[in-house]
Design a protein around this nucleic acid. Structure first.
Lengths: 197, 197
DNA sequence: GTCTATAATAGGATAGAC
DNA sequence: GTCTATCCTATTATAGAC
C-alpha cells in the first residue's frame, strides 16, 4: 500500500473508532486529527468536503467488506443439514459484528441511519433481504410436507432469532461480545422451531 | 397544568422532536430555543445543567410513560388463547412505538444508548426482560407435553418475531409506521411457531 | 503531502434588566 | 419567568509556507 493510501486509511480507521464511540455529530475533526497524529489541514487534503465525506468513506468501506463476507457465508450453504448450517450462518454473522471494524461499522450504521445516502440505505436493505431470500430457497429445496409459503414464514422466523439475539446483546445490553449463553439460546430456538418441518 | 409546567413541557417536546430527527449532539440549544419560541437564556432556567439535563428529562419521561403502557398490556394477559393474546401484545407494542412521542422516544433511546445513565439502562433492560418472563410464565401455565425449558425457548422465539419486525421496519427500513404486510407476517409466524406445542 | 496559522462561525452557558 | 446582550470556547474550514 502506498504511503498516501496508508494515511487515508489511518484517518478512516481513527474516524470509525471515534464515530462508533461518540457518534458522528459528537466527534470533532480536531479529535480525529489529534488521534490520527496529523496536522490541522491534512484531513481536508484527503477529504476535501470534510467530515461528512469521511463518514461516507467509512460507511462505504464497511458495507463493501461486510457484503463480501455475507456472500461468502451464503455460498457455503448446501441445502442439507439445515440446523447445522443455520448455526454456521449465525456464527459467521456473529464473527463479522464482533470483529473490531465490524462492530464499529454496525454501531455507526444503526446510529447514523438517518445520515445514510439512499444508495447506502438500499444496499443495507438488500443485504438483509438477500440472507432471508437465500434461507427461504434453502428451506424450499428440502423435502417436506410444508407449503412453500410456510417455509418462507419459517425462514423469517429463523432470521428473527438471529436479529433479536444480536440486537438484544450488542445494542440493548450494550455488550461488546455475544455471550456463550446467548449463542446456546439461539441454537435451542433453531432446534425447536425446525420441529415444525 | 400551570403555565410554568407548560413551558417546561414545551421545551421537552421540542427537544425530543429535534433529538429524534438530528440526534443529541447534532441538535443545538439555539435550535431548541428557536423552535420552542423562547428567549436565549430560558432553557437554562428550566434546566440549569443545560442540554444534558434536558436529554435526561426526555428519556425519563419516555421510560416512565412506556413502562405504564407495557404493564397495562401484560396485566390483560389471561394465559389462554395464546395466539390471540400474543398478537394483542404485539399490536399494543406497535401502537406505543407508532405514537409520535413513542416513536421519537424509541429513536432517541436506541441512538443515544451510550449516553444513558446506568439507572436508565437498567430500566430498559428490565422492561425488556419483563415481557419475556411474563410470556414464559403464560406458556408454562398451558397444558402441554413440552418441558418448561422448551417453553422458555418458545417464549424467546415469540419475542424475537416482534423485535425483528419492529427493528427491520422502523430502524433498518426507516419507515414511520409498520405496514399491514409486516403485521400479517408476524401473525403467520406466531401461528406456525405455536404448532410445536 | 504535510505543516502552521488563522479566519469565520457556531456552540454552550451566564449576567443582569425588566 | 422571561428577555436581551454577551462571554468564551470549540469547531469547521481555508490560506499559504515548506
Amino acid at each position: 500500500m502506498k504511503k498516501s493510501e496508508q494515511q487515508r486509511q489511518n484517518i478512516i480507521d481513527v474516524g470509525r473508532r471515534l464515530f462508533a464511540q461518540q457518534g458522528y455529530a459528537g466527534t470533532s475533526t480536531r479529535q480525529i486529527k489529534e488521534q490520527a497524529g496529523i496536522a490541522e489541514g491534512l484531513l481536508y487534503y484527503y477529504f476535501p468536503k470534510g467530515k461528512r465525506q469521511l463518514l461516507d468513506a467509512i460507511v462505504h468501506e464497511g458495507v463493501d467488506q461486510r457484503m463480501r463476507v455475507a456472500n461468502a457465508l451464503l455460498d457455503d450453504w448446501d441445502n442439507t443439514h439445515i440446523e447445522e448450517h443455520m448455526m454456521a450462518l449465525f456464527d459467521g454473522i456473529t464473527q463479522v459484528v464482533q470483529d473490531e471494524v465490524g462492530y464499529q461499522s454496525l454501531l455507526i450504521t444503526v446510529r447514523e441511519r438517518q445520515l445514510l445516502s439512499d444508495e447506502q440505505s438500499a444496499w443495507l436493505i438488500q443485504a438483509f433481504d438477500g440472507v432471508q431470500t437465500r434461507l427461504t430457497t434453502a428451506l424450499q429445496n428440502l423435502e417436506t410436507n410444508r407449503r412453500p409459503a410456510d417455509l418462507a414464514t419459517l425462514a423469517q422466523t429463523l432470521m428473527s432469532l438471529s436479529v433479536k439475539a444480536l440486537f438484544e446483546e450488542l445494542l440493548l445490553r450494550n455488550h461488546r461480545y455475544l455471550s456463550a449463553a446467548t449463542r446456546d439460546q439461539v441454537a435451542q430456538q433453531v432446534h425447536l422451531v425446525l420441529q415444525v418441518l
